[in-house]
Nucleic acid binder design. Structure first.
Lengths: 328, 328
DNA sequence: TTTATTCCTGCATACGTATGCAACAAACTC
DNA sequence: GAGTTTGTTGCATACGTATGCAGGAATAAA
């Protein structure tokens, strides 16, 4: 189909060997300025474009980063996607986008990543069995869990410091005089939800403060329904800590539906600081995840590992920032 | 790096030739059931995985679809992304995600797509110069503009019928007794904005109805600011038609900030029917874009063209549906 | 049984690039 | 000027698969 002009064609026109053409396009190879120019001119004239498949076949490497993601609908992850795309492009990498329906990444998705011999993988809003993760380790493919932390430091991960964050939030609400609080968690199998719960409860327990916990699912609808249920079951608590913003918006709307005034009758704190949290309709008090830093940290790690693989992994936790608005 | 088990290894273990191994994995090749089983068993044992690069090198084809997108932050496009990812996966294709900052797709992005010899391309929320588009035509790579329409039927496109939609909206608002209306457009270089404006104005002109037009940019902030400006400049109009939902939400928040009651004092109609439009906080009357059908239509076209290229292109327009809620 | 047909299979080669090796030229050292 | 180092180039080969071709096995037709 494609008119397929090859390095050989360019070589002929430039009056050099195919090897020289190859060297012009290969970072760090030794070519004289003279032949380089001749080759580039010839390439320009013919519209030459190195064949990535031939290249990857022989180098056994690719310029593709696998990005695994579930919750594109959550504005938090939409921004994450945007940032990763931009920054990897700057580094000369393309994005293989793998959307997964399930919380745990499926075999077929892993196969895709391995088939394309991706240079690295970012897994966001999804988890992975240890066995599957081992596949990547075995193939020396660096892997980062973004905004997820797997047990026992088996894999590299980048999160914000959820424990500290939720402790701060608990202390803040206590200082505001909240007594009976409600905690609404997200997907209870995720480290983010677990840690946000842990830090929050830890502080409240220390202060012998009573609270109730409800499990939800990190979606607006989940937050809305959970809040509705709560309002049926008990009298209005003095504060809500909701494990992410998008759920918190659902909680707010449910409260308003029931004519509960915020922040007079109850307070609401979210987590993430998505754009919508600052909208006049909500003005949500929340915890800002340092997305920019988290993404940079992730990319730096991956680029380092791509350059020379160590397999060394840590759990990176970056501090976020409390954002006080009008729901508290 | 990778322990790289090849077809040759499998062949040896299975006691057949490399060609036979290849044929087992090649759709439509002729292999006996017996050798097929022996090969698959051997492959299983060795953990064989056909090398996509070697395959693409020789077939000059790929199983990659390029998805070009700008507005991931807009929930409409987030859903579009999700649907395309799911459906292409079902068809055995992977997604090369190309995020573009600019309205017009840049050369480097096109290069990426051509380098990977993508089987097809979907361009969403972005445009492309004719010259660039020709590159794809020249290489027989099918291309669809999704939710964008380029002039003169040069390229295939899939949209909802924006003209009919905006006509209906105008008629609806007239029937509701709206007299002085305001139209807030999105990015004025996009076909969606242009056509939504055209249909709306056409009907109002027919009825000799006065209206004012403001340009904005398809974002929440844009909608908010524009509405704020409008409220300073003139008295509250009897209705707003806003070219997409996310802007409409900004308009609503701005109106509320100014204590303008909706729908008593003024009415607001959006476009897209994103999830948020149905949230209790907004209950936005809008026009539903038939995303599911639009995506299916796009995928069907691409799959057909991949199977046998014709280069035939049309502008497909699918009818949407009016959704009446509480802002009118 | 013989012949014709269908179905499989292996051999050999091609895809477009990267790279070790040897050859050679140029520059430098003394 | 002889010897040494550095830099550049072409040759030949390898990467792992797909595929045309011819030969062989198996089956059908006679």
């Amino acid at each position: 189909m494609r008119e397929t002009v090859t390095a050989k064609d360019v070589a002929k026109l430039a009056g050099v060997s195919q090897s020289s053409v190859s060297r012009v396009y290969f970072e760090g190879a030794s070519v004289s300025e003279k032949t380089k120019k001749r080759v580039l001119d010839a390439a320009e004239e013919l519209g030459y474009r190195p064949n990535v498949y031939a290249r990857s076949l022989i180098t056994n490497q690719s310029n593709i980063i696998g990005l695994v993601m579930k919750g594109v609908q959550n504005p938090f992850y939409a921004e994450v996607l945007k940032r990763f795309s931009s920054i990897f492009k700057q580094h000369g990498y393309s994005i293989l986008f793998v959307y997964t329906n399930n919380d745990e990444i499926q075999k077929e998705d892993v196969d895709t990543l391995l088939n394309y011999n991706v240079a690295g993988v970012v897994v966001t809003d999804a988890t992975m069995s240890l066995a599957v993760g081992e596949e990547f380790v075995k193939n020396h493919i660096p892997l980062v869990f973004f905004n997820r932390k797997l047990g026992m430091g088996e894999f590299h991960s980048v999160c914000c410091n959820n424990l500290n964050a939720s402790r701060s939030i608990a202390q803040y609400l206590l200082s505001k005089g909240a007594t009976d609080m409600v905690l609404i968690t997200g997907n209870e199998h995720t480290s983010t939800s677990i840690e946000r719960e842990k830090g929050f409860c830890e502080v409240l327990d220390q202060h012998k403060n009573d609270y109730r916990k409800y499990n939800s699912n990190y979606t607006y609808e989940g937050g809305y329904r959970t809040a509705m249920t709560i309002l049926e079951e008990m009298r209005v608590p003095s504060a809500f800590f909701v494990a992410n913003d998008i759920m918190a918006l659902g909680v707010i709307d449910a409260l308003r539906k029931n004519n509960v005034r915020i922040p007079q009758d109850t307070k609401v704190v979210g987590f993430d600081n998505i754009d919508m949290a600052s909208w006049p309709a909500y003005e949500l008090t929340t915890w800002e995840q340092p997305i920019k830093e988290m993404v940079e940290e992730t990319v730096n790690y991956l680029m380092d590992e791509v350059t020379s693989y160590t397999g060394f992994s840590r759990n990176i936790e970056i501090e976020g920032k409390f954002i006080e608005r009008n729901t508290t």
